[in-house]
């Protein structure tokens, strides 16, 4: 198995430990990642606020580069994943978009026909690698560590665009948490509720209120840590914990960090020193 790897801007900055742990886990699972050479930003929430064609063309440049190699794209950031899938969807289904993209690409030599697609690491690990193969690699017992799975908004929405997960009650991370010997908490009603990240710059109080709701639910359910597949959620839940008015600190990990630990990968390689809230509590359970 081999993918064209698309880290995206967040994984080069605030989500560096997500990048490190994704590479380490995929290597251990025997899945090859070839980083897309010279990739560009996916456009995030900004490009479609400027032009709907630009919002397709930016991700499509990366898709075109991957298509040249004949590889599907692997995108860990859920926003990048969502934008790439949205661009593919538009090219395949929106009247006139294919032609508009061709016009946008004029003079660049780029071409995207829609032969390849974008996958999320959760989808690939659960559905392609398979839970049995994952279980076979687990070497450390997570000793019933209580983990709150927080998925964020766009990994499963809208289903016609992304669609490897249940919209209201996604379970792929739950399954991996359990496979790793930890306990997945229900996070009732909060699994996919917005973390507030996209409005942090414009309405800080509103954003932090949303963040605090998720943190409080995790704590009330007795979580030892939270795991997420989204770097923006990661920043909000981890770096903004104090600002969100939550007293006791709770570690926030990328799901690949937790999985990597269970697979016996060294904490340093998983970037566990890069999370904001110290992750010692999790490490103690694992080594103890």
């Amino acid at each position: 198995m081999r993918f064209a790897y698309y880290p995206g801007c967040s994984l080069e900055a605030s989500g560096r430990e997500y990048d490190m742990s994704t590479r380490a886990v995929f290597e251990a699972l025997g899945v090859e990642l070839e980083e897309i050479d010279d990739w560009n930003c996916c456009g995030a929430t900004a490009a479609y606020s400027i032009s709907d064609t630009l919002a397709v063309a930016l991700p499509a440049r990366n898709l075109a580069l991957a298509e040249e190699k004949g590889l599907d794209v692997l995108a860990p950031c859920s926003e990048c994943y969502h934008r790439m899938r949205k661009a593919e969807y538009a090219v395949r289904n929106k009247p006139g978009m294919k032609e508009r993209l061709e016009k946008a690409f004029e003079g660049t030599g780029l071409k995207f026909t829609g032969r390849i697609t974008t996958r999320h690491p959760l989808d690939v690990i659960v559905n392609d690698v398979g839970i049995d193969a994952v279980k076979a690699r687990i070497t450390k017992d997570l000793n019933g560590l209580k983990v709150a799975p927080y998925y964020g908004c766009v990994i499963a929405k809208p289903p016609e665009v992304v669609g490897f997960e249940s919209v209201e009650n996604p379970t792929s991370m739950d399954v991996l948490i359990e496979a790793a010997g930890a306990r997945a908490l229900p996070m009732s009603g909060f699994k996919t509720r917005c973390c507030g990240g996209p409005v942090l710059i414009t309405r800080e109080e509103l954003a932090l209120g949303l963040t605090s709701g998720i943190l409080k639910e995790a704590m009330e359910e007795g979580a030892d840590c939270i795991v997420t597949p989204c770097p923006l959620c990661g920043v909000m839940l981890d770096a903004k914990q104090k600002a969100a008015g939550v007293e006791a600190e709770i570690p926030v990990l990328y799901f690949t960090q937790l999985l990597g630990l269970a697979m016996g990968i060294k904490p340093k390689r998983l970037g566990l020193d890069k999370n904001f809230v110290p992750t010692d509590r999790v490490l103690e359970v694992v080594s103890g």
Binding site: A57, L58, K103, A104, G107, T108
Partner: peptide, 18 residues
Amino acid sequence: IKGTKQLKTILENIRTME
């Protein structure tokens, strides 16, 4: 990135189109 020229062309093409 090396492809900034491509990105500028893309943006110009879109501006012309729109």
